[in-house]
Design a protein around this nucleic acid. Structure first.
Lengths: 142, 142
DNA sequence: TTTATAATTGTAACAATTACAGAAATGGAA
DNA sequence: TTCCATTTCTGTAATTGTTACAATTATAAA
């Protein structure tokens, strides 16, 4: 399809040889912006790529991160999540339903003092709490 | 000592029975604000508490987190770090020397749109890059 | 077709964490 | 004090996420 064609070109452009597995994993990432774990990617793709190895998923994601077309999200201490959107944006995790939401924020007026002369390469903002939907469910049950 | 006496009272006040291990671990946290890992805490305390078990360190930290007198820092995906300062503040990790720096930031004007009606319980800001000291070392070597 | 190189796979190793059961400590009640 | 119940601590085993590595397979150039 068109999509896959685009992915092939895109990977080539950033210096990644577009193997079948790599294209499928990248396609999965941009179609599933729900910040999947390695386990999720492996489980969902295995039926379509029967020979797929979990090691390949790990290797491929590491490659994507190195080439800066994917970022690691460490909002939970248990396992890493991956996001094909590498722009600086925040992540909210609902502690009730577990869903992770994206949000944008203005990092220009954080007004940071102590690290003014440091070189900043990555900024991650993680917020935890209860999402609107779960809040409403709570209300109903009271 | 005075310090230990304070810790005993403090733990009691937040609803934690102040056992010897718990007091020592909490004392370690407030004396070592360098965001230690479980391994670091265990290694440093073992000589003073020969019977200490790593499981106790895990259990105790989980208890502290539950009672909200300690926060988990997940700036790296490999292992959890712990911080007895539970106020909202940012963490900078230098990718050269690995050191973690605290900094304060203004979370009032982040100007967040998409999660306005969400309940916010924790805010974590993680920044990665190169600290001033490592920057200067780099300059000298060029 | 041959050959060199790169990518993929599967297994084993590793490291952080958790589960669990028994031992030790604690704190009343008799 | 002694007895008993409960809590805490300990050590080992199990679990989980990740990485190392060697063998196999695919790719691409000569």
């Amino acid at each position: 399809m068109e999509q896959i064609q685009n992915i092939e070109n895109y990977l080539t452009n950033v210096g990644i040889k577009p193997s079948y597995q790599r294209m499928k994993i990248y396609e999965y990432l941009i179609e599933n912006m729900n910040h999947p774990t390695v386990e999720m990617i492996y489980k969902d793709l295995s039926p379509h790529i029967p020979t797929l190895s979990k090691t390949t998923v790990y290797n491929t994601l590491k490659l994507f991160v190195d080439k800066e077309i994917t970022q690691i999200i460490t909002i939970e201490d248990t396992e890493a999540r991956f996001d094909a959107d590498t722009s600086t944006h925040g992540h909210f995790k609902c502690i009730k339903c577990g869903k992770i939401f994206d949000f944008s924020f203005d990092k220009t007026n954080l007004n940071i003092k102590q690290i003014e002369n440091f070189d900043i390469q990555q900024t991650h903002l993680y917020i935890k709490g209860i999402c609107e939907n779960c809040k409403n469910i709570d209300k109903k049950n009271n």
